[in-house]
Computed example of a mutant assay.
Amino acid sequence: MKVLIGGYTKHDSKGIYELDFSGENETARLDEAKNIIEVSGPTYFRKDGNLIFAINKPNNNEGGISVFKLNNGQYEEVETYLTPGSSPAYVGINRERHLLYTANYHTGIISVFSYDENGKLTLLDTDTHTAKTLGPRPEQVDGAHPHFFDETPAGNLVCCDLGNDTVEFYRLNDENKLEHLATYKNEAGFGDRHIVFSKDGNYFYVAGELSSKINVVKFNENTWEFEDIATYSTIPVDWDKHNGAAAIRISNDGRFIYVSNRGNDSITVFAVNEDHTLKLLQRISVFGEFPRDFNWDDSEKYVVVANQNTNNATLYLRSSEDGMLTPIQHDIEIPEGTCVVFSN
């Protein structure tokens, strides 16, 4: 097993790094990071077999997606799709249907691509978010900011818009065109960033970057009815410094939710109650600063968080019984990390 970490390349980073995983349980360790792909600003990326789809920001005028294919132990760039302006902030994937979804925070554009086994990209459709319901915070007043674009449990598409405080739902029709289906509106200033769904597909949990909150919502993916269930803070009640909630993940059994806090520099762990409300279990240090992303292996036993501002990562053991995290390795050197992917 290996861990891949990419991020910004403003200082020392050259792109995407690979760290070998060794040992098990309390003796598990990540070895020294090796640069395997040189690419500018791979702040988010996805892997499908021998293909890696990475955000690329090669210059100040263009940004987009580059595709790298593993050949004879080395990754080679096989495709690049660039557009004027900033690069996307998020990449989603459907490996069975060979589809990619991108959300561009700065341009407001969400896009759907198809790809073949060699990594060739074909743009299927786009939609541009407009300033319909902008929130009051400084990060929102300049326009729409789609920050996430991926699939729902029923196979529709969902986008979180930080600028508009909304969750937008779409379908990709038989002509491979995006059709807007519904909108869920959060409280003003919530700053919708990322979203996860319950195991039964009847609830979603959306992380608000600007509010440092998680909103629990019951919804029906046939009638598009929404019910606001509850909202929870990801930071302590007495925290008075800046914080931005970032990544959110839910365990495969649907029992635990995890969210990273950039500022409080922690991972907050919630238990999911039978009625889908949440119970705070743990708030644990990331042993660094600005944890934009974290991820786990297929068994969800090991968790790695990347700390962007302190150029390090931390490895935890996760209990499947009580959901708690136990740190087992600190100060893993990795430059400017913002995206973590486990690879077999």
Rank of each mutant, 00 (worst) to 15 (best):
E225V: 15
N25I: 07
A33K: 01
I257D: 00
V3K: 01
N50C: 11
Y203M: 07
T133A: 14
E76M: 13
P327V: 13
D174M: 14
P84L: 14
N307F: 08
I334V: 15
P138S: 13
D161I: 03
G135R: 00
D297R: 02
E225K: 08
R46W: 09
R318A: 12
I195T: 04
E18S: 15
G155Y: 03
D238Q: 10
Y302V: 03
D297K: 03
T83G: 02
G41E: 06
F45E: 02
S285V: 11
D297N: 14
E26T: 15
G208N: 04
L178A: 07
T223V: 12
D322G: 07
Y75F: 14
Y205L: 02
Y90G: 04
D293V: 00
N94C: 12
W239R: 05
M324G: 14
Y184P: 01
N173D: 14
Y302N: 03
S87G: 11
P153D: 10
T130S: 14
P58G: 10
S198F: 08
T268E: 00
Q329V: 06
E227H: 13
E168V: 12
T133E: 14
I93L: 14
L315K: 00
E32I: 12
Y302W: 09
F294T: 04
K213L: 13
N60V: 12
Q140V: 07
E227M: 12
L30W: 02
P236F: 02
Y232E: 04
T268D: 00
L19C: 11
P335L: 09
P88G: 07
I109K: 06
D31Y: 10
D48V: 12
T326W: 08
A306N: 02
T268N: 00
L100R: 03
D200Y: 11
P327Y: 10
T43M: 03
T310W: 10
P88C: 07
G6Y: 06
K34P: 06
Q329L: 11
S13D: 01
F68K: 03
K69Y: 05
C160Y: 03
E139M: 14
N71M: 15
H129W: 04
C339N: 11
I334L: 08
D20Y: 10
D240C: 11
N264A: 13
F169E: 05
I328T: 06
E38G: 07
G7F: 00
A313M: 06
Q329C: 07
F45Q: 00
Y75Q: 05
